[in-house]
Write a protein that binds this DNA or RNA. Structure first.
Length: 433
RNA sequence: GUGGGUAUAGCUCAGUUGGUUAGAGCACCAGAUUGUGGCUCUGGGGGUCGUGGGUUCGAGUCCCAUUACCCACCCCA
């Protein structure tokens, strides 16, 4: 146990972390372009927030929360999702008092006590965004377009945007009773889970994957057939705005998201090639949530994307991301006499903004060269007795094998010049994805 | 919470019907005449065979339990 990480968690080690850093860069870039500001909230909250926010009949709350009592006898829960916290902060930090609408994004770890499998972990990471304060269907479209834009920037292909409207408090009671009416004669044929859902939330029966429930559900009244005037026109307008952007989507009448707070628009993005857990992102409108959490009636909409699943999809599509990058310069010495000079030079190089390193294992010149090559150093600076005596250093370009002699006074400037050039090309490579 | 599969070196895996000091490739380290990397060659370090019990003269190999991981169900990112 001492050397085993907790189940469903993972270490992101050098070689992998560069992919995460790249994704996080892209997240910040797109959010700034779309006008979303970052918010950082605690990874744990009072349990009540999630009970209220996420909904106490959802699977997340019923069986997946990491909840514990702290030393002050408070019930604390590791956040299973980001929206509830964003809503809490919106209220607590009085963001409603600022210019509206309020557009926020976050990235970070979420926690759900699930059995791990492909694409599912107990600690996983989401990038999410929320918009508070606007009813405009154009915002629904913006939010969906933004997710698809993000995937597109990562060069992901073949994703499907599924959308639906799950109604609002005005039309949902009618829908519920219609569904109950429909399923009542067949209640015996439903799976045990759905018999439970029949009472609590018959909407979710539509989402069931069990054969019999699925068959029955195919002919059941769908949410889109029972929408009130308001919901209907909202949904139509959302679709119109998606069309304006030429954004392909499919209306999925069965799409009912697992969180209770959704109203009007619900959407989900599916990837076909990442195993059984094919959803790589989803979201929807939650016009009642802020009020449920004790705030003024405020419309809201948001989404969350699963970082691990994005990485899975990228891998299975053969998309490469920046890897580990070696030092710009590696300082190699020959003989003890050069050691002091090399050590000083190393720090001078670093001081000019160039990444540099040297051997600390007392290795032979050959071994130092070998290491520099494996570490991916772009240049090697060699100092031996001969160079010391002449007041020079050899600078070797590891790619071209070209080696020049530079006076010790000019070494740093010489390297700075070469490396600056490399940095520019590196930045360009970095952007192509 | 339920089901199936797997567990031998840092990694990927061999390991005959149970039989002596458990192997390979890759990786790591060091050398190949005295100061130059990627290729090649030689050598070296590294394994309580997941853990605990059992059967047996003898278990990496058979049996039981346990843990971890993987995959799937439920559900979600």
């Amino acid at each position: 146990m001492l050397t085993t990480r907790p189940r469903g968690t993972s270490d992101i080690i050098p070689g992998e972390v560069e992919t995460w850093q790249y994704l996080e860069r892209e997240v910040r870039r797109i959010c700034s372009e779309y006008g979303y500001a970052e918010i950082r909230t605690p990874v744990f909250e009072h349990t009540e927030l999630f009970l209220r926010g996420v909904g106490d009949t959802t699977d997340i709350v019923e069986k997946e929360m990491y909840t514990f009592i702290d030393r002050g006898d408070r019930s604390i829960t590791l956040r299973p999702e980001g929206t509830a916290s964003a809503v809490r902060a919106y209220l607590e930090d009085k963001l409603y008092a600022g210019p509206q609408p309020v557009k926020l994004f976050y990235t970070g770890p979420m926690f759900r006590y699930d059995r791990p499998q492909a694409g599912r972990f107990r600690q996983f990471h989401q990038f999410g965004a929320e918009v508070f304060g606007s009813h405009d269907p154009a915002v629904d479209a913006e939010v969906m377009a933004m997710t698809m834009d993000f995937y597109g920037r990562l060069a992901l292909k073949g994703l499907e945007l599924h959308i639906n409207s799950v109604g609002c408090p005005a039309c949902r009671p009618a829908l519920r009773s219609k569904l109950r009416e429909f399923f009542l004669p067949h209640i015996g044929a439903l799976c045990p889970n759905c018999r439970d859902r029949f009472e609590k939330n018959p909407l979710r029966i539509l989402d069931c994957k069990e054969g019999p429930c699925r068959k029955l559900g195919a002919n059941a009244p769908a949410t889109v057939d029972c929408l009130c005037e308001d919901c209907h026109s909202h949904f139509e307008s959302v679709k119109k705005h998606l069309d304006l952007l030429d954004l392909p989507y499919q209306v999925n009448r069965r799409l009912v998201r697992g969180l209770d707070y959704y109203t009007h628009t619900a959407f989900e993005i599916m990837a076909r090639d990442i195993g059984a857990q094919s959803s790589i992102g989803g979201g929807g409108r939650y016009n009642g949530l802020v009020e449920t959490c004790g705030g003024p009636s405020t419309p809201g909409i948001g989404y969350a994307l699963g970082m691990e699943r994005i990485i899975l999809a990228m891998k299975s599509q053969g998309i490469t991301t920046p890897g580990i990058s070696g030092p710009d310069v590696f300082v190699v010495t020959a003989g003890q006499a050069a050691a002091s000079e090399a050590f000083r030079l190393l720090f001078k190089i670093r001081g000019s903004g160039i990444s540099a390193d040297k051997d600390y294992l007392n290795r032979s010149l050959k071994a130092q060269m070998k290491y520099a090559g494996k570490a991916g150093a772009k240049f090697v600076v060699i100092i031996g007795e001969e160079e010391l005596a002449q007041g020079v250093a050899r600078v070797r370009n590891m790619d071209s094998k070209e080696q020049v002699t530079v006076t010790s006074g000019e070494v740093v400037d010489y390297l700075a010049d070469k490396v600056k050039y490399r940095h520019n090309t590196y930045l360009q490579e970095d952007t192509i994805k």
